[in-house]
């Protein structure tokens, strides 16, 4: 479990982290989302004791990272932005070194073997790290963070430099690890956070601007039910038909989606289901519906809304 209380970090007069508080429970995967330079890496560096905060407190399983750093650090596995690899060592030598450095007590051979299998670096164990590709280095870095089976994993952009297949593998691995570890991962890839994390924290310019589950986030922002439909037929008439639905609030023509096909966004009045009504009206005129889907906000949209300040102003009143 990680508790962060009112964390601040100043670089000179620049506030890199500005009063951030959150908790991550055991068995929870927490996603840090923010644009480059938002303060994600700085926060992670503070959590792991690499940097110290200007003010605020970090508790790892109840141990203050400043008061008892050695005990607190025993429970952390950290993969920094740039994997901390010694270029002149082989993967095996490196993992052995980390094993000793972390004063690990688990049976060495089987433990390291297991880690290499998990992070899929079995086939490069005898190779010198300098000669590995970026993807492999990233995975050796991930393997390093797993040594000693720490309760808390802090991963700074763990999938950077991996190919799509590896990304899926690593995400599956992180999800698996999340069942019995506390995992914090940062990313600016929104779909990644959405796919992996239970809880999402959005940071911008050092400030925490949202802290919620992925579903709640999209709910609170896109509370009015929106539908997207593509209909083949004269756009003016179709629009009028749609506007004629009593439960429909507003109808927008989004774009033309082909010859004689138009895409509309329809917001329904508080939670009423207008899908059947749309179907009947279009069927009556013989205008085929080519697509109909819920237009829940994607994380991209949430993110843009949050960071451009839209939501921020609104949420201050809400909370």
């Amino acid at each position: 479990m990680i508790e962060v209380k009112e964390l601040c970090k100043n670089y000179g007069s620049k506030k890199a982290v500005d009063n951030i508080s959150f908790t991550a429970e055991n068995g929870e995967i927490l996603g840090f989302l923010g644009p480059n330079g938002a303060g994600k890496s700085t926060t992670m560096n503070i959590l792991t004791g690499y940097l110290s905060a200007t003010s605020g407190q970090v508790l790892l399983n109840g141990i203050d990272i400043l008061e008892d750093p050695v005990a607190a650090k025993k429970n952390i596995g950290y993969l920094p932005e740039i994997p901390p690899l010694y270029q002149d060592m082989t993967v095996d030598e490196y993992l052995n070194f980390v094993y000793e450095l972390k004063k690990c007590r688990l049976p060495k051979r089987s433990h390291l073997g297991e880690i290499c299998e998990l992070s899929r670096i079995d086939d490069v164990r005898k190779r010198v790290i300098r000669n590995l590709s970026k993807g492999y280095r990233q995975r050796v870095g991930l393997a390093q963070s797993l040594v000693g089976n720490p309760k808390t994993l802090i991963l700074d952009e763990p999938t950077v430099g991996l190919d799509p297949k590896q990304i899926i593998e690593i995400r599956t691995l992180i999800k698996k690890l999340g069942k019995n570890h506390t995992v914090i991962l940062s990313s600016h890839i929104l779909s990644e956070v959405q796919a992996v994390c239970d809880k999402i924290i959005v940071i911008d310019k050092g400030k925490l601007i949202a802290n919620d589950t992925a579903q709640n986030l999209s709910h609170s922002l896109g509370s009015d039910n929106k539908l997207v439909v593509q209909v083949e037929g004269p756009s003016k008439e179709v629009k009028e038909l749609l506007e004629g639905i009593s439960a429909a609030d507003r109808v927008y023509e989004i774009r033309s989606a082909g010859k004689n096909v138009t895409e509309y966004e329809i917001s329904a009045k508080n939670g009423s289901d207008i899908r059947r009504e749309i179907f009947r009206r279009m069927a009556a005129r013989n205008y085929p519906i080519l697509l109909m889907r819920n237009s829940e906000l994607t994380l991209e949209e949430i993110f843009l809304k949050l960071t451009t300040g839209d939501f921020y102003g609104k949420s201050e009143g809400d909370r």
Partner: peptide, 14 residues
């Protein structure tokens, strides 16, 4: 320079 201090300084070593 190689950022390996991020490993040593976040390990349980004084």
């Amino acid at each position: 320079r190689q950022k390996t201090d991020q490993l040593t300084l976040t390990s349980p070593v004084s």
